[in-house]
Amino acid sequence: MNIELNGKIYEVEPGQTILEAARSHGVYIPTLCYHAKTGGVGKCRVCVVEVEGMRGIVTACTVQVGEDMKIVTESPSLRKHRKMVVDLLLSAGHHDCLSCAQCGNCELQDVAYSLGLTHPSFPQPERKPEDLSSEFLVFDETKCIQCGRCIQGDNCTVINDTLGFAYRGADTKVSFDHDLPIGSSSCVQCGECVQLCPTGALTDKKARGLGRNWELEKVNTTCPYCGVGCQMTLHVDRKQNRIVRVTGREDAFNEGMLCVKGRYGYDFPSSPKRLTHPMIRKNGVLEQVSWEEALDYTATRIKEIVDRDGPDVFSAFGSGRITNENNYAIQKFTRAVIGTNNVDHCART
């Protein structure tokens, strides 16, 4: 199907929204509440466009394309309205970009910049303290624009039902359970809300002050915790040789989702207690050995014991942190090479 976007004809898929269609052709329409995962909800009103034959102006995130639809995404009046809406949002909180963890990675900042907004026009409200009550999340209410992406993610993706809107009108706020501090709420701290937040309202506590977004090298990898294999991005400070934060990859099968371990349990690579080479206890003391020596020793001991006492004294224990293929190899080795069915796994239940 064809549509006319700002005077040019584009081929688009039926069922796409105007926003999706425009984005697929690289036409920029600013948005704040839209996220591919949470869908178009028409809350922020920043993606307003003009469609010929439709009354007034409409939101690109909620209206589906139609055959030969004529759409205008930029006009002086649209720009004026967008500017006013974003100005209202800037004025409703304290968006201190200088110190904000999301600076350079903030959708509100991007939209304000593209509209040429330099400062809020209206008096700003009182400051409120951040919610620092939980281990991994920080919630700064004054940076929240009530887009609802965190709530949608919490209720519809991870289905935890912790987040919701409380109160009404200008008092509307994102609340954890019945307006509890995060640390006292039913939040499991998976960080899905942080991943979806378009501003600096929800941020990672462990990453505070440890590096600016643009200074950190992004390293794509697979989560090491279990066999699901969630795709994630490590934000690495090369100079300090340190992982600063972890985000889920939204283009992968896990769609950005991670669990609390995957997202926040990233300290172990740099733990001093971590085993980095094979060791054998000799005369009661662990000694560093080569891989050859370690493997030879292990193979010899298994053979000796099984030959002496039979295969059923042997048992293998797989792991949730290795792949299916590795676990397959373990049970195959145990059954075919050793000759016993004593196979188990930490995630058996």
Binding site: V85, F165, G169, A170
Partner: peptide, 21 residues
């Protein structure tokens, strides 16, 4: 109206409050 705004969309939530002010 600003008291009865549900708070879902920005112009009504924030705009009516500023108009009232």
């Amino acid at each position: 109206t600003q008291d009865e705004s549900c708070g879902k969309c920005v112009p009504c939530r924030e705009g009516t409050k500023r108009m009232q002010a």
